[in-house]
C-alpha cells in the first residue's frame, strides 16, 4: 500500500507544482526578483502548503505508527551547524541562478525539455559530490 501512496503523493505534488506554476523557472526567478519586478506568488504557494501540512503533522505526530508503515521516520537533527548554512548558501545560489529547485526540476522532465534534463543530471552529480564531501 505504501508504494501506491508514494506514487499518488508524487502525482499530487507534481500537479501542485504545475498549477502553482512553480515548475516554471521564470516564475520562481520573478519571486526572487524583489528589488525590481516582484511576483509574490510563491509566498501563496508556501502558505497553501503549510495550511495543510502543519496541522496534519501535529495531529498525527504522536500516533503510535503511520497507517501503512511500521514507524515514523522524522529527522531528529536539531543542530544548526556550518553544513546547514553553507549548504543552504550553495543551494540558494544555484536556485537564484536558474530558478529550479529539486522538485520542479524533476517534474519538468515530463515536458521533455533538454535544459531541465541537463540541470537534473548536474543536480544528481551534485548530490554525489555532496555525499563524498560529507
Amino acid at each position: 500500500m505504501n508504494k501506491i501512496v508514494s506514487l499518488l503523493c508524487g502525482i499530487v505534488f507534481g500537479i501542485g507544482l504545475v498549477i502553482s506554476e512553480m515548475i516554471n523557472p521564470e516564475k520562481v526567478l520573478g519571486f526572487l526578483n524583489i528589488f525590481k519586478d516582484w511576483d509574490p506568488s510563491l509566498v501563496f504557494v508556501m502558505i497553501g502548503a503549510l495550511l495543510v501540512s502543519t496541522p496534519v503533522f501535529h495531529l498525527f505526530k504522536n500516533k503510535k505508527k503511520p497507517l501503512f508503515s511500521s514507524n515514523f521516520l522524522i529527522s531528529s537533527n536539531k543542530e544548526v551547524d556550518k553544513k546547514l548554512i553553507i549548504g543552504s548558501v550553495f543551494f540558494g545560489a544555484g536556485w537564484g541562478l536558474i530558478g529550479l529547485c529539486p522538485g520542479p526540476a524533476i517534474t519538468s522532465l515530463a515536458l521533455l525539455n533538454i535544459n531541465s534534463a541537463l540541470f537534473v543530471t548536474a543536480m544528481f552529480t551534485g548530490f554525489y559530490i555532496g555525499l563524498k564531501v560529507n
Binding site: 516582484w38 501563496f44 508503515s69 521516520l73
Partner: peptide
Amino acid sequence: IVNFTPITALSGGLLIGLSVALFFIFNGR
C-alpha cells in the same frame, strides 16, 4: 508587483501540502 497569481499559487500550494500530509499519515515520512 508583476505577474501575481495568488489563486493558482494558493491552489497549487494546497495540493503540495496535501501530498506532504498524506505521505506523513500513510508512510510516516
